[in-house]
């Protein structure tokens, strides 16, 4: 499914956040969105997810305009938002429960548990899991939404460095066998370089996309990432200029 965002405008009162924002995402593409704090990264995902209504402009999927919450999108917020009174299995099957396919989804979830590193955690409660496992559970819940486009809002932002690296490796491996479009909002330059096909760098609030960077390397490793000093410096410089 092809996603196109056309002339998107959104403001909080007098403060313009997104102004005439436009970009496209092809099927199976992994796009990271970077930018200074307050530039509208999370607002953009909220607009795409249908939580917020654009004040101008359109979001189109395969040319067709979407309005409100659309089942083509699966949204994963920054916090894992696992319901503490539910087991992990019940948490990850939320989508199925809402759409009256809980039993069917439970079977699917059980089959995916090992792939998401959650085998044996089905009957555990969220507070019995580590931060990384909770994020993986939240990711599995999002993955089971049967959507085509995944909106990930700083999914690893709250994790420590080691767990974050492990989660990035895991997401990279998962994505390589998973033909879904992913839009990832992150503050982490390395995360964007390591995971994405394309990086969009947003400017100051209301300024839109400042720069688009393609990351063409297919066989990415941590060693490869450590050699990307030039790219990292360029992204850092662009973001820093926007914060001035």
């Amino acid at each position: 499914m092809k996603l196109s965002v056309n002339n998107l405008y959104f403001s909080y009162g007098d403060q313009c956040i997104l102004n005439d924002l436009a970009f496209e995402a092809g099927e199976g593409e992994f796009i990271s969105i970077l930018g200074p704090s307050g530039c509208g990264k999370s607002t953009l995902l909220n607009l795409l997810a249908g939580i917020l209504k654009p004040q101008r402009g359109q979001v189109r999927i395969d040319g067709k305009e979407t309005k409100g919450i659309n089942s083509c999108f699966a949204y994963m917020p920054q916090n894992d938002l696992l319901l503490p009174w539910r087991t992990i299995l019940d948490n990850v099957c939320l989508y199925g429960e809402i759409h009256r396919r809980k039993e069917q989804m439970k079977e699917k979830a059980r089959a995916q548990m090992a792939r998401f590193g959650l085998q044996g955690c089905e009957d555990k409660y969220p507070d019995e899991l580590s931060g990384g496992m909770r994020q993986r559970a939240a990711f599995l819940r999002t993955a089971l939404c049967e959507a085509e486009i995944y909106l990930l809002d700083e999914p690893f932002g709250a994790l420590d460095v080691i767990t974050r690296s492990t989660m990035q490796d895991w997401l990279r491996e998962l994505y390589s066998n998973w033909s879904r479009t992913i839009l990832l909002v992150t503050h982490d330059t390395d995360e964007a370089i390591y995971l994405s096909d394309r990086i969009l760098i947003l400017g100051k609030p209301g300024e839109g996309i400042r720069r688009e960077i393609q990351v063409k390397e297919k066989n990415r490793t941590r060693e490869w990432l450590y050699e990307q000093g030039k790219l990292r410096a360029e992204i850092y410089r662009l973001i820093q200029e926007e914060t001035k």
Partner: peptide
Amino acid sequence: DEGYLNLIRTYGGSRFHLYRIV
């Protein structure tokens, strides 16, 4: 937390789901 409610909304949940699940 509004985040939980938005999550249910993005999953296509109705007001009934917001109350029953969250």
